[in-house]
Design a protein around this nucleic acid. Structure first.
Length: 633
RNA sequence: GCCAACGUAGCUCAGCGGUAGAGCAGACGCUUCGUAAGCGCCAGGUCGAGGGUUCAAAUCCCUCCGUUGGCUCCA
């Protein structure tokens, strides 16, 4: 179905199923549009009018809330992506009705068109103004002390304390704001929901009530944003997972544990088969390792020291404690250590789709995206230091090849460097970081550097993709490890006949296969590319007398490796087409009297495009070409 | 784990103190049909679990489990 997004006008047609003839870029742009279109090119969000509008809307909302709850305490209220929020400490939980009331009051305040007035004050003046606002007082202390901004984050500069007044409200705030409340378009704001949030994000501190709102420059923009939310809801992998019968999660089995249904398992199987072929073609060896390992192993690896809170309780077997594995690396290392390694053996690349179990707190599970048991497409590279730059180059380009094959074209890299606390020789760190950055430069990928953002055991590159809705997801990670080779005393014998320490790289491309599947579902809205579709062809006989011929066609297609099914129910053709469309089967082949007569089939795509009658051989060639080229039809 | 909302048929939802309802899906029967829903009939629920209030609880209260939106954490 073609959806016309509201208020978009020419050039912003969005096709809900992302069919091949749909202009892909336009589809992306329409979903993606907000920041890009709302702001002048290269303008920073923080300096945009939109940012000021949202910040100002937060103040207006705070006033409305305080009017309703005069004893309420306010915390902070910044603009965020797509809107703003404000945290409150209130005598009772807010209800949806409260939000409506607050929103209505906001519109009145906006109508007053009262100016935002900035004032610089001393810390003591500020304390007087906010005498009954404990959270503000805490912020003022931080500002006065310096080294902390209004969010409590460290800063270099001493802070000037400023307040902003508008209408009946005054807030401790750095600004900036719009000139007056009237600059906020009352028809372009909406309060979205209430959620709990810890004061300063610290779970030991009080839980506040956070009201999320959205604000835009025009009502059209708001409408567009709400439409985008709707679209995301339609593509929600949990909803599609049920509708397309891909997977489920059973209370009986347990939260965060995924059951892959035949259709979902087929997609996974195809994806894994591709993954396997590519790995074998690129110098990897496959390994298989068990799900549990002795406590001593996890002591040696350090997991019981630094990862214990994510691990499940031990299982006791013959007076020995065993742990369910949260990672695969110790096993791969043991395989490495099972023999003496020569520099001639290196690099070694051990790959395994290893299923790991990690404890997740009960409130954080989310469909396939956040689970307690998942399979990593893991691999560990072991190489001599001299081989390291080439190895990085290889693994980065291999990662990109895999991601692009699944239809993710927009990829961004994040390089994380040495944190303050780290293990390993600084020279090694430098070499590794240099190699990572050089490889990034050669790849031509856009990348950001997160100084000090690496793990204590090594620097890393993370790859994030943008999906069809413009949302970023981290998939791949390529991590150096200076820790485990040391802990396990890994060595190889170099040309000099002496043992040397190898370099070790962990990498996962899809990351978690469960999560990757979830992202694929949402990216494609359930309409997988032909090569991944669990059912690629549905053959639809018009009447019972066409069934035999339909099965003949199916057999021929199956022999060619295509996944074809016949819908031989006694329903009308229209109903069969509808069901096949809903199942997002890429091709429907209609067979009736005419086709049987001519030994042909009538081809229809899920995009509703009709390719017309053709020979089975012609269709087979066409479909196989789509599979080979991984087209998204 | 924390805050809030929500758990009624396989799915989506109505009912919100007086003996459980719809649509879709399913079974069966009729229909054999040209590019997104043919018709009829049947079956299906200890209303998430446990406790309490009441003459009476899906409905009100408490506890637990789960889900959703956030917080924190993270693949």
């Amino acid at each position: 179905m073609r959806l016309l997004s509201p208020q978009l006008g020419e050039g912003f047609l969005f096709n809900s199923n992302k069919y091949p003839e749909a202009p892909k870029k336009a589809a992306f742009a329409s979903l993606n549009y907000p920041k890009e279109d709302m702001m002048a090119e290269n303008e920073k969000y923080e300096e945009s009018k939109l940012y000021r509008v949202r910040h100002s809307a937060a103040h207006v909302m705070a006033q409305a809330v305080l009017e309703k709850f005069p004893k309420g305490k306010v915390a902070i209220g910044p603009p965020i992506e797509d809107g703003f929020y404000y945290d409150f400490d209130l005598p009772r939980p807010l209800t949806p009705e409260d939000l409506e009331e607050i929103e209505a009051r906001m519109r009145e305040i906006i109508k007053n068109d009262s100016p935002f007035v900035r004032e610089e004050v001393s810390a003591d003046q500020a304390r007087e103004i906010f005498a009954d606002q404990p959270y503000k007082l805490e912020l003022i202390d931080g500002l006065e002390k310096g080294g902390e901004d209004e969010h409590g984050n460290p800063t270099d500069e001493a802070q000037i304390i400023t307040i902003y007044k508008d209408d009946q409200f005054v807030d401790l705030c750095r600004g900036p704001h719009v000139e007056s409340t009237g600059k906020i378009n009352p028809k372009a704001i909406k309060l979205m929901n209430v959620a709990g949030a810890y004061w300063r994000g610290d779970e030991k501190k009080p839980m506040l009530q956070r009201i999320y709102g959205t604000a835009w420059l025009t009502p059209q923009d708001l409408k567009q944003y709400l439409w985008r939310l709707e679209e995301a809801k339609k593509r929600d992998h949990r909803k599609l997972g049920r509708e397309l019968d891909l997977f489920s999660i059973s209370d009986e089995v347990g939260a965060g544990l995924i059951l892959w249904h035949p259709k979902g398992a087929m997609v996974r199987h195809i994806a894994e088969r591709f993954w396997e072929d590519e790995h074998l073609a690129h110098g990897y060896d496959f390994v298989y390792t068990p799900h549990i390992g002795k406590a001593q192993l996890w002591e040696t690896s350090g997991h019981l020291g630094f990862y214990a809170e994510n691990m499940y309780s031990p299982i006791e077997i013959d007076n020995q404690k065993y742990y369910l594995k949260p990672m695969n690396c110790p096993f791969h290392i043991e395989i490495y250590k099972s023999d003496i390694r020569s520099y001639r053996d290196l690099p070694l690349r051990y790959a395994e789709k290893g299923t790991v179990y990690r404890y997740e707190r009960s409130g954080v599970m989310h469909g396939l995206m956040r689970v307690r048991g998942f399979t990593q497409d893991d691999a560990h590279h072991f190489c001599a230091p001299s081989q390291m730059p080439a190895e990085i180059d290889f693994v980065l380009s291999f990662s990109l090849h895999i991601l692009r094959s699944f239809g993710f074209q927009e990829i961004k890299a994040y390089l994380s460097t040495r944190p303050e606390k780290s293990v390993g020789d600084p020279k090694q760190w430098e070499d590794a970081e240099e190699a990572l950055e050089a490889a990034l430069k050669r790849s031509g990928l856009p990348y950001d550097v997160d100084e000090g953002g690496g793990a204590f055991y090594g620097p890393k590159i993370d790859l994030k993709i943008k999906d069809a809705l413009g949302r970023e997801w981290q998939l791949s990670t390529i991590q150096f490890d200076f820790n485990e080779p040391e802990r396990f005393d890994m060595t190889y014998i170099d040309e000099d006949g002496q043992p040397h320490r190898p370099y070790m790289i962990h990498r996962a491309l899809m990351g978690s296969i469960e999560r990757f599947f979830g992202i694929l579902i949402e990216h494609y809205g359930g309409a997988f590319p032909v090569w991944l579709s669990p059912v690629q062809v549905k053959i639809i006989p018009i009447a019972d007398r066409h069934n035999d011929f339909a099965f003949e066609v199916a057999d021929e297609l199956k022999k060619a490796g295509l996944r074809a099914e016949v819908d031989d129910r006694s329903d009308r053709m229209n109903a069969k087409i509808r069901d096949a469309e809903k199942a997002k089967v890429p091709y429907m082949l209609i067979v009736g009297d005419r086709e049987m007569e001519e030994k042909q089939i009538d081809v229809r795509r899920r995009s509703r495009e009709r390719l017309g009658a053709m020979d089975v051989a012609a269709f087979k060639a066409l479909a196989l070409e789509d599979v080979a080229n991984k087209v998204e039809g």
